[in-house]
Simulated scan of single mutants.
Amino acid sequence: MATGATFEEARQEISKVASRLFGTEILVAYAPERVRFDPRPVTAEPRPDLLPALAHAFVSATERALSQGVLHDYRETRDTLPVVRGRIRHADQIRRRPGVPVPLEVLYDDHTPDIPENRLLLAAVRRLLRVPGLDPDQRGALGRLTARLDGVSILPTGAPAPQWTPGRRNARYSHALVLAELVLRGASYELGEDGPIAVEGMFVVMWRLFEAYLARAVGEALRHRVGGRPEPQDRSHFLDAARKHVLKPDLVHYLPSPHDGIPRPAAVVDAKFKTKPGRDDLYQMTAYCVRLGLGEGHLVYASGKEGVVEVPVGDGRLRIWRHVVDLSSPWRDLAATIDALAETIDTARAASAA
């Protein structure tokens, strides 16, 4: 964008990026909770399939959800057995088998993976497996998820999506479940002015969507690259000693300390959905780095120029990187950009620690 552009020109440039981005749905795939659906119909262009970007995000989120094991819960089960399990349903026993001691009509609590959360995930996996154009890696990953969900009932054709209630028990499933609902909803359309079909509208605040996408995508790329623990929207650090002013970086990546093995901040990233960097961004990132004890900070913009700013801090220097992620890129190119960004962040971390 040319120097001296007006606010309206900047807004229009970002709107163009956003409109192209909606065609790929990749931000929505990574941060579906940032989208609010509206039952009022809007026109749209039909899509022949769900985009592979959605499959990629769903597979990644589901693998993370199942990394600690498949969620189980107790379910009341009525059964006919040759031995007692749980308690005997005496009324049913007398009515169905008067005077016959076995088999027994029993009622027991079964600890099972066949619960709404897992049924929803399996239904989404099976839906995505029917999508043409998936690359072999994605299709193989979906097949492995099917095997992990062994013992879970298949959702009958035409049946509504299983209902689930967010809570502490299924917290690690939450992102994958929201994506599964998006898959079963049939997020296979492009918003347009003269489309032949009517679909639910959706409202997004683009800067919030960009922040959530970037934090999850970069955090995931860093975790695959160097391990550790990414914390999107980390709110565990404070600017002041009285802990009244919380810091709000979009991503803090933790790695075990080489001295004691305790996870400590290794990188901090903040997303800026704007076309031109500002001084406030530098002030903000400087505060993050100082409080987190880091020598490098990373600002990621939706447009603009890349560069590095060196900030004197005490007897040393703090380096603040400006990166650009082109949201108008095809999703495969965008994924490659995220991987390259993670590599740059890790290389800068290693150099700073040396």
Score class of each variant (00 low, 15 high):
residue 45 E to W: 07
residue 60 S to D: 13
residue 207 W to H: 14
residue 102 V to S: 11
residue 96 R to N: 12
residue 315 D to I: 07
residue 96 R to I: 05
residue 294 L to F: 01
residue 42 V to I: 15
residue 310 E to G: 08
residue 1 M to Q: 06
residue 272 K to I: 00
residue 240 D to R: 10
residue 353 A to I: 01
residue 96 R to A: 14
residue 118 N to Y: 04
residue 354 A to T: 14
residue 22 F to T: 10
residue 135 D to A: 03
residue 140 G to E: 13
residue 322 R to L: 14
residue 81 L to A: 07
residue 21 L to Q: 14
residue 6 T to Y: 08
residue 45 E to M: 06
residue 117 E to W: 01
residue 204 V to A: 11
residue 185 R to F: 15
residue 305 K to Y: 07
residue 264 R to L: 06
residue 19 S to D: 07
residue 305 K to D: 13
residue 347 T to G: 12
residue 217 A to C: 02
residue 221 A to T: 06
residue 342 A to G: 15
residue 150 D to P: 02
residue 319 R to S: 15
residue 191 L to V: 13
residue 116 P to W: 04
residue 294 L to K: 03
residue 289 C to Q: 11
residue 213 Y to S: 03
residue 97 R to M: 11
residue 308 V to Q: 14
residue 80 T to Q: 14
residue 181 E to K: 13
residue 120 L to R: 02
residue 71 L to C: 03
residue 320 I to M: 13
residue 168 R to Y: 07
residue 308 V to G: 12
residue 286 T to P: 11
residue 115 I to H: 03
residue 69 G to T: 11
residue 332 R to S: 13
residue 287 A to T: 10
residue 169 R to L: 15
residue 167 G to D: 03
residue 306 E to P: 01
residue 256 P to E: 07
residue 128 L to S: 13
residue 352 S to G: 05
residue 151 G to T: 02
residue 119 R to P: 10
residue 186 G to D: 04
residue 119 R to C: 05
residue 144 R to W: 12
residue 179 L to K: 12
residue 325 V to H: 02
residue 240 D to Q: 09
residue 149 L to Q: 00
residue 136 P to E: 15
residue 1 M to N: 08
residue 74 Y to P: 00
residue 307 G to Q: 09
residue 114 D to V: 00
residue 5 A to G: 14
residue 69 G to E: 12
residue 111 H to I: 01
residue 137 D to Y: 04
residue 22 F to G: 05
residue 112 T to V: 08
residue 44 A to G: 03
residue 88 I to A: 04
residue 157 T to D: 11
residue 17 V to F: 04
residue 3 T to F: 12
residue 306 E to M: 01
residue 9 E to H: 09
residue 62 T to D: 11
residue 41 P to W: 10
residue 243 R to H: 14
